[in-house]
Amino acid sequence: MAAARAGLGRIHPESSILFLCDMQEKLQDKDVYFPQIVSMAARILIKVARLLGVPAVLTEQYPQGLGPTVPELGAQGLRPVSKTCFSMVPSLYIDTALSSSSSLSCSELNRMVALARMQQSGIFLSTSKVLILQLVKHTAHPQFKEIQKIIKEPAPDFGLLGFSPGETNPLVLNSRP
């Protein structure tokens, strides 16, 4: 049983997909962290996915009304999939628990609830750097030097925790008497 659990949460380039969800013109004013999210996706995740041959799926929520994907994303060459449902992919392809976890993340509260629901559904949360290093696996990887250049800059703060580093987490109750 322990041996079976050892691989739990591991990712591999040959069985991975990068999902880029609804990074569109009219949605950029709805999320205070939109520029950081686009920067992270464009600066790191798309570049690494291309280097490792990881396929990427780009969606646009009702592009007639919300506009196209922002050019800053750098998703040239990816053909966006237009959608009107509030999930990235039809539940036909993924577990129902996963599809129901993808709630809107325009606010910190929605983002935190979505992350908690994903975790409850069995999703392993990670940082982009840990995820990338897990995909590369070893410094001997033929793309490691190029990827190392891409990930060496610190990631911007996305506000996912609801507080800044160094602050007390307002979501954790003080259990001291």
Rank of each mutant, 00 (worst) to 15 (best):
Q76A: 11
L161M: 09
I46H: 11
T168W: 04
Q64V: 00
E167T: 07
T139M: 09
L131S: 13
V89Y: 06
E146V: 05
L8C: 00
A2K: 03
L161A: 10
F34G: 10
R111E: 09
S100V: 00
V32S: 10
G122L: 04
L104E: 11
I11Q: 10
C21S: 05
E153K: 06
P71E: 08
M112H: 01
M23C: 12
S105H: 06
L133Q: 12
H138M: 13
P63A: 01
A56Q: 08
G9V: 05
V54A: 06
D157M: 02
L45F: 00
I44V: 15
V130Q: 03
D29E: 12
P165G: 01
L109V: 07
Q76E: 13
A42P: 03
A97Y: 10
Q28C: 13
T69S: 11
D29V: 08
P90W: 13
S107L: 12
L171E: 02
L109E: 14
F124M: 07
S175A: 15
E108Q: 09
F158L: 01
I151A: 03
P142H: 06
R10G: 05
E60G: 09
C21H: 02
S16Y: 09
S121Q: 08
D29R: 09
Y33P: 00
V136C: 10
P154D: 15
G159P: 14
C106Y: 05
P63I: 03
S16N: 13
P170L: 05
F163L: 07
L98C: 05
L20H: 04
L73T: 04
A140S: 14
A56V: 14
